[in-house]
Design a protein around this nucleic acid. Sequence first.
DNA 1: TTATATTTTTAGTACTTACTGAAAGTTCGA
DNA 2: TCGAACTTTCAGTAAGTACTAAAAATATAA
Lengths: 171, 171
Amino acid sequence: MNLEQAKRHFVETWGRLGAEWGINRTMAQIHALLLTSNEPLSTDQIMAELTISRGNANMNLRALVDWGLIVRENRPGERKEYFRAEKNAWEMARIIASQRRKRELDPLIRSLEALLELEDNKKADKQEAAAFTQLVEGIVRVGRQGMSALDLVLKIDQSSFFKPLLRLVKR
Amino acid sequence: MNLEQAKRHFVETWGRLGAEWGINRTMAQIHALLLTSNEPLSTDQIMAELTISRGNANMNLRALVDWGLIVRENRPGERKEYFRAEKNAWEMARIIASQRRKRELDPLIRSLEALLELEDNKKADKQEAAAFTQLVEGIVRVGRQGMSALDLVLKIDQSSFFKPLLRLVKR
DNA sequence: TTATATTTTTAGTACTTACTGAAAGTTCGA
DNA sequence: TCGAACTTTCAGTAAGTACTAAAAATATAA
């Protein structure tokens, strides 16, 4: 496999991954394309490379900027906007994790917590209500700890203090 | 909010979450319904509760059994099959995490690793190829460590040895 | 066995989401 | 301040996914 093929393959793989995890395919592909490119690319170059429309490119580029995964870049004397991707894998992971958490996990947990405030007045319900509360509490707890763990992992690579911990986990 | 409302709300929330993370809505809703139910439910009860068709119910119930999130149950003298959900939140998380990892993360990483075997013969490509390799290696490394970390987290609640670690991360 | 209760499969349809093409809007140099 | 270069928005459409209804298959009690 040569470099060009490998890059194409990467774009495809990354796109598929995105789709599987609820990020749209094109957004992931644009991201992959920018990841594999040495220089920043313009909207037109991206459109050509992935054969997508201007509108589509624009939408997804904006979303990526929004997420903080890519940045706009301007060249002196040119109006066209170029885009460049953050290429450090850990930084990427951190961004993606924290964005998804902010957008999806936090609201979920808040929503579940609201459920815990049910009035279990009726005596008949008592036992059933207890079971339900226990279920929801369990899920909230797992959610919280999962998030904490995520934070930990994302710190490990940076921090030499946490690094030794990794040994404990390596299979 | 009374218990019934809370349960309905839970089913809806869980469904939404599923959709956001690439699991189909109905499957998540059926799961939620079984989670909130004290007794096992039959296909017909599930159909009625969620107003979905038999085919849909059947398909998604099978998928849930396949994942190991629910189990079939038979009552003596009855042909109807009943379903019961695993209700321990940690166990659920463990199952979901390991299934998704097996189905999606593992193949991804294998696919990316294949990319690392590119023939960087052309001298012109040398530097570019190195950059690309570095990118992919980084991603693979993050993927691996992420998975290890997941394993760790899922052990924490069970193991009193790991428990103190969590304090280090709490916001 | 056979009749019947139940589950499974599937072809077609409905729903949802993503994408296009074109029009409208914006920015900036001349 | 005008017009070219470029970006953004959006209504309509296409593609993808999930769902239904009904037929086929299977299992069990009699």
